[in-house]
Simulated scan of single mutants.
Amino acid sequence: MPEFARFQDEPLQMRSGTVGKTGFLRLGLEHRCGQTILAKLERRSPYMVQRALHCDEAMPGLAYVFLITTTGCVLQGDRLALDITLGPHAQAHLTSQSATKIHAMDANYAAQSQSITLADHAYLEFLPDPVIPHRHSRFLSDTQITIAPSATLLLSEIVQPGRKHHHPDERFGATVLSISNSAVRPDGRVLFAEKLVIEPQRYAMRQTGVMDSFDVFANVILCAPKDKAERIHERAGAEVKLTEGLAFGACRLPNDAGLIFKVLGRETAQVKAKVREFWGIVRKEVVGHPLPPPYLWR
Rank of each mutant, 00 (worst) to 15 (best):
P2R: 15
P2F: 12
F4D: 04
F4Q: 06
F4Y: 08
A5I: 03
D9Y: 00
P11W: 04
Q13I: 11
G17I: 03
V19I: 12
G20H: 05
T22C: 12
G23E: 09
L25M: 02
R26N: 13
L27G: 03
L29P: 09
L29V: 10
G34R: 02
Q35L: 14
T36G: 13
L41N: 05
R43F: 11
R44N: 13
M48R: 15
V49L: 01
Q50K: 14
R51E: 09
H54K: 04
D56W: 09
G61N: 05
G61S: 07
L62W: 03
L62A: 06
V65Y: 02
L67R: 05
G72W: 05
L75Y: 13
L75Q: 13
Q76I: 00
Q76P: 04
G77W: 06
G77F: 07
G77M: 07
A81Q: 14
I84W: 00
I84A: 07
I84Y: 03
I84D: 02
T85P: 01
G87V: 00
G87N: 08
G87H: 11
G87S: 12
H89Y: 11
H93N: 10
S98V: 00
S98R: 10
S98N: 06
H103V: 05
H103W: 11
H103T: 08
M105K: 03
A107C: 11
A111E: 15
Q114D: 05
Q114E: 13
S115P: 00
S115I: 10
T117N: 08
H121S: 13
H121I: 01
A122Q: 07
Y123G: 07
P128H: 07
P128A: 06
P128R: 07
R138I: 02
L140W: 14
T143G: 01
T143W: 02
T146S: 10
T146L: 01
S150A: 09
L154E: 07
S156G: 07
E157F: 05
E157K: 03
P161D: 08
R163Q: 07
R163P: 02
D169W: 13
E170S: 08
F172E: 02
F172P: 01
V176Y: 07
I179L: 15
S180G: 15
S182Q: 15
A183R: 05
P186A: 01
P186I: 04
V190L: 12
V190H: 15
L191I: 02
A193I: 10
K195H: 14
I198W: 14
E199Y: 08
A204H: 13
M205G: 10
R206L: 10
T208E: 12
G209H: 08
G209N: 06
S213V: 10
S213W: 09
F217G: 00
F217A: 08
N219D: 10
N219T: 13
N219A: 12
V220N: 12
K228E: 14
R231V: 10
I232Q: 05
R235T: 12
R235D: 12
E239N: 12
V240W: 09
K241P: 00
K241M: 14
T243C: 11
G245H: 01
L253G: 02
A257W: 03
G258H: 03
K262M: 07
V263G: 05
V263T: 09
V263L: 08
G265W: 02
A269V: 14
V271Q: 01
A273R: 14
K274D: 01
W279A: 04
G280W: 05
E285T: 03
V287E: 08
V287F: 00
H289I: 07
L291V: 03
P292T: 11
P292R: 11
L296P: 00
